[in-house]
């Protein structure tokens, strides 16, 4: 993967996010001038933005606009694909995420991720949640038990599964599986939680549960959520970033983006005229 480090200049949209974000909050993630390629195909063009802590930032935009790519760039999941290329910088709390010598495993534990389609491991509920702490070297049975219980409780799943912790995770319903994946991500005590359309495959009731959960989680975590669903973005997020064709078109407080968009394209999208 080749990359260069550009000069420390703030991009247009990045600056605007900063200006608009509530003053008390620090930025967790800062992305500078990031461009990204899958092989010969460029997916992101000079993206710059900042993600404030203890708030929900929503990425919206039509399919293929690059919002998932950017999300996956934040915890370096794109490393798993062959032939990708990145330029620009991604900083987490001021540290370059793509710096050589970064402890990738430790970094990823700080940045939890929940996927579009729930992907529980074919193990028990307990083992799914304990997975992260275990691979991080936690062996103490009592601490694991505690972590599992705490994470499941935070993911609002504890009451539903406490009597079948050792049953296969695959026996849970779709909504439960997704909450299990959230609990699994929380078990490593991340600072940031990345959610890639976490409710897109769920029924309204489960979606409601996830949305409530996201609202809860922002008390303690920085949440980034990619969504197709504009109502969802409007409901749960504090900040909204609108992507189109690999570029950030507009970013700002959710209320402003939805009610007083500055760009034509944003308005067209949020009012449902395309997308």
């Amino acid at each position: 993967m080749t990359r260069f480090i550009p000069q420390m200049t703030f991009g247009r949209s990045g600056a605007s996010v900063q200006k608009q974000s509530p003053a008390a909050r620090n930025d967790r993630f800062v992305v500078h001038d990031a461009s990204f390629w899958y092989g010969p195909k460029q997916a992101l063009f000079d993206v710059s933005l900042a993600i404030p802590e203890r708030a929900v930032t929503a990425f919206i935009g039509p399919s293929g606009c690059g919002k998932s790519t950017l999300l996956r760039m934040l915890n370096r999941m794109n490393d798993l694909f062959d032939g990708t290329r990145l330029t620009g910088r991604v900083l987490l709390d001021g540290t370059d995420v793509y710096a050589p010598g970064l402890d990738l495993a430790d970094f990823r534990r700080r940045v939890g991720m929940v996927f579009q389609k729930s992907n529980p491991f074919p193990k028990s509920v307990y083992e799914n949640v304990a997975y992260g702490p275990r691979v991080a070297g936690e062996r103490n049975r009592r601490r694991l038990d505690h972590l599992v219980e705490r994470s499941l409780t935070r993911a609002a799943l504890w009451d539903e599964v406490k009597d079948r912790l050792h049953a296969s995770a695959l026996e849970l319903s779709g909504g439960q599986q997704q909450r299990l994946c959230i609990a699994r991500a929380l078990a490593t005590d991340p600072d940031v939680l990345l959610m890639d359309e976490p409710a897109s495959a769920l029924d309204p009731k489960s979606t409601q549960a996830i949305e409530d959960l996201v609202y809860e989680l922002k008390q303690d975590y920085t949440v980034v959520i990619v969504t197709h669903n504009m109502q969802q973005a409007a409901r749960v997020s504090d900040q909204t970033v609108f992507f189109f064709e690999g570029r950030v078109v507009e970013a700002g407080p959710t209320e402003q983006v939805f009610t007083r968009p500055r760009e034509q394209q944003t308005e067209a999208y949020v009012t449902g005229r395309f997308g």
């Binding site: 915890n75 999941m77 798993l80 495993a105 430790d106 970094f107 990823r108 534990r109 939890g112 991720m113 996927f115 389609k117 992907n119 529980p120 491991f121 997975y131 992260g132 691979v135 991080a136 994946c181 699994r184 991500a185 078990a187 490593t188």
Partner: peptide, 18 residues
Amino acid sequence: VPSAQREGAYALGASRWQ
């Protein structure tokens, strides 16, 4: 093996061997 399985694990900070 579905790549979602691998991604899920990597996202939790698992090493390649893990």
